[in-house]
Design a binder for these strands. Structure first.
Lengths: 149, 149
DNA sequence: ACGTTATAGTTTCACCTGAAACCATTTGCA
DNA sequence: TGCAAATGGTTTCAGGTGAAACTATAACGT
């Protein structure tokens, strides 16, 4: 005999559902950091990500930025245009392949980078402060595994 | 004497930067799941999230959905409207407070829920399969800490 | 050498998103 | 009781986003 008046629909429990928890955490963290530099420097998150790539790998093409950020190529194209317009990035053309752009931070771009980078790092430290040293190591290893293709 | 020709700009290493890694992981995972049901059921991720809440907590108001999902109230309002239009959610008015809506899944809504929920769970299992039982426990505890306000 | 195919990057389009303004209703308090 | 403030929800507006189409250039195979 079935005493359940309503069939068991087995609803998802979002608060224990890993993809959902990751989404909440990621949004909270990223928006927390972005909120600081967006207003202060009129800098969007995609623009900032492009800048971090150009800081580490000067003279790359837009395509390499796409590869290194996992961002959409349209998003990168637009972010780069805005950065060039704002005088934060210099865009040249590759010798020998006129399709390719050659991107690097301008002086102004470096100046902003050098202000925002410590700010981002401080946020990360604050987040990691909630964990023990052991947990930080675990998280690092776990993310490595989950992010492996 | 300073032998560094260029000042040390200390660029961020995105691939080791926690907020960035979380963002990549979260997007990959969520989009992987959403890709399956979006086309098959014309169901957006926000709509699906609203449905999971209504599955677990029948007869809630839109405001409660907002509270439980950490989604924007505009996004919830629109998702609910689409779900009502599609006949997947029934929207009534609260007795004694005509501002409040009373939302619940319709028969059609439940039918879709019962197809998508196992699919979502399967994706989560697949993701967690990359980890050992111990790592899964660690991740759970770590997320608890990081998500605590 | 030359036409097909591939690649770098931009534009278009259709949609999603959040902040702010807005409307209706309810609550709180003088 | 009556009026200001708060609340639930929707609409508006000003972006941001990705898929697909497009342009320009380069690479490849015959």
């Amino acid at each position: 005999m079935n005493f359940d008046a309503v069939p068991a629909h087995a609803p998802l429990e979002l608060e224990h559902f890993l993809p959902y928890r990751l989404s909440i955490l990621s949004n909270t963290v990223s928006q927390g950091i972005a909120a600081e530099y967006e207003e202060r420097f009129q800098l969007s998150m995609t623009e900032w990500r492009v800048m971090t790539i150009l800081a580490r790998f000067p003279e790359v093409s837009a395509r390499e930025v796409v590869e290194r950020t996992a961002m959409d190529k349209v998003a990168v194209s637009r972010a780069v245009s805005r950065l060039v317009d704002a005088g934060r990035v210099d865009r040249g053309t590759h010798d020998g392949d006129k399709r390719r752009s050659v991107l690097k931070l301008s002086e102004a771009g470096w100046a902003i980078h050098d202000e925002v980078a410590p700010l981002a790092r401080a946020h990360e430290r604050e987040l990691l402060a909630k964990l023990s040293a052991e947990e930080r190591e675990h998280l690092d290893r776990i993310l490595d595994k989950l992010l492996a293709i």
